[in-house]
Amino acid sequence: MAVIEVNHLIRDFKIGGGGGGSLRLLHRLLGRSKTLKRVVDDISFTIEEGDFVGYLGPNGAGKSTTIKMLSGVLVPTAGIVRVLGLEPFRHRKANAGSIGVVFGQRTQLWWDLPLRDSFKLLGAVYRVEPERLQRNIALFTELLDMGGFLDTPVRQLSLGQRMRGDIAASLLHDPKILFLDEPTIGLDIVAKENIQQFLKQINREKKVTVILTTHNLDDIERLCKRVIFIDKGRVLFDGSAEGMTERFGGQRYLVLDTEHFDERTWDGPPIARREDNQLWFSIHDDKEIASMVAAASERVAVHNLTVKEPRIEDIIKQLYALGEA
């Protein structure tokens, strides 16, 4: 079942000129210096229940704007957004009850009060029955290891602790869909792994559909079954994480360091790429490797050989480059 449908979604921002502040009133009244910027430009995708989707793209690509439209905070300029069959902006309250949102750079927790108090308030706001709330708090406290700081004022928490608190807070009402906007930004490796483990678990056990924006490559590798890559408001890639690897530099290479290579007389295996004294051969099947090495070493002196695995950094770089083109 598709839980999210996005169809030809467009969002423009009017960027007012003349700086901020009250003077913008004059500019607006005079209708001057308004420029229209298309932040989301004809995006379409559907997301199935239980998916774990990485929503990727460089800064300013339109990721957060899409998430704001999915959570009903921003109204689309054109196109259709449906979350569990409802248009989020029109049915903001109903939609809010079935989704959880974490904006990694903001907090929905009460700064000066203990974490536990924020949980209780959210329980009341989302009308979660007291027993279910207690159960969820206990469960998340255990999974996210929050026991040590549940009664500490949020302003005294470390970033990693606060982020765990924020993620738990967004799940107290058992939402069907969880939007995470950079939940691992600025976290150390331990906090990051704890959160990744947790997200994997709620996706698997509670069947929560997760949409995650991130710049952390290991988030993608460890968590995302599917990747949607956007840039300048457009979808550049939409498919499985393996599909992405295959299509963009997914190739594995046999790399030989040689000397005295002459392209004109070469009659060995086809060369995919050449970098100075390195020869790159595409590997389609592991069985080829031995014969390739043998064939190459008959023709040139081989000093070293390595097999290059696809690296997700390279793939992302390629995708970014695709956006620039």
Binding site: G72, V73, R92, K93, A96, G97
Partner: peptide, 13 residues
């Protein structure tokens, strides 16, 4: 200004 308003507008209230 900070954009935190989205948190207020997102809640079911």
């Amino acid at each position: 200004q900070t954009g935190d308003i989205v948190l207020d507008l997102q809640k079911p209230w």
